[in-house]
């Protein structure tokens, strides 16, 4: 099963390498990984999407906890949560294709953030499924480049993952 694991990590040199290395060493999967410092610059927040059975997910969580620089770990997919991913798509946009791509982006509430006479770059935010659906919907439009951030997530309501 797919799980979204949020980690608060000391923003120190080597901490991220250690965390990623753990997944490689123990044969766990990383479907996506997203990391940046938080409002507190000494802490990084990391969202990691992985899959595995309950035993594997339990081990992942415990092994993450064991890393000295890991402050907190939470499997946010265990309860109500919000998940968002950012995607930038560069497509070929010529002639009447330009109108078609624009319409499609509007339907998905995407924004065209860069325009040239022959290309559009569209920014889209949503769940992974929504981003997949947009790519499908582009149909015959030639895709030049896709950049996805991987999911970031947060628990709904008053539950927080903070110090």
């Amino acid at each position: 099963m797919r799980h979204i694991i949020s980690v608060l990590l000391e923003n120190e040199s080597g901490a991220l390498a250690r965390l990623v290395g753990l997944f490689a060493q123990r044969g766990y999967n990383i479907d996506s990984l997203n990391v940046a410092p938080t409002d507190d610059p000494t802490l990084s927040r990391l969202t990691l999407v992985t899959h595995g059975n309950d035993q594997v997910i339990e081990q992942i969580s415990k092994q993450l906890h064991k890393l000295i620089e890991v402050v907190k770990v939470s499997d946010i997919s265990e309860a109500a949560h919000i998940e968002r991913e950012l995607m930038l798509v560069k497509v070929k946009a010529n002639g009447n294709q330009r109108e078609e791509v624009k319409r499609c982006a509007d339907i998905f509430r995407g924004q065209i953030i860069d325009v040239t006479p022959t290309t559009y770059t569209i920014q889209l935010v949503g769940t992974g499924d929504k981003l997949d659906a947009f790519i499908q919907a582009l149909g015959a439009t030639p895709i030049l480049e896709v950049v996805r951030s991987g999911a970031s997530g947060i628990a709904r309501g008053e539950k927080t993952l903070a110090l």
């Binding site: 120190e12 040199s13 901490a15 991220l16 000494t42």
Partner: peptide
């Protein structure tokens, strides 16, 4: 990711 925890 470069800052280092400093002694108190």
């Amino acid at each position: 990711m470069t800052s280092q925890t400093k002694p108190d």
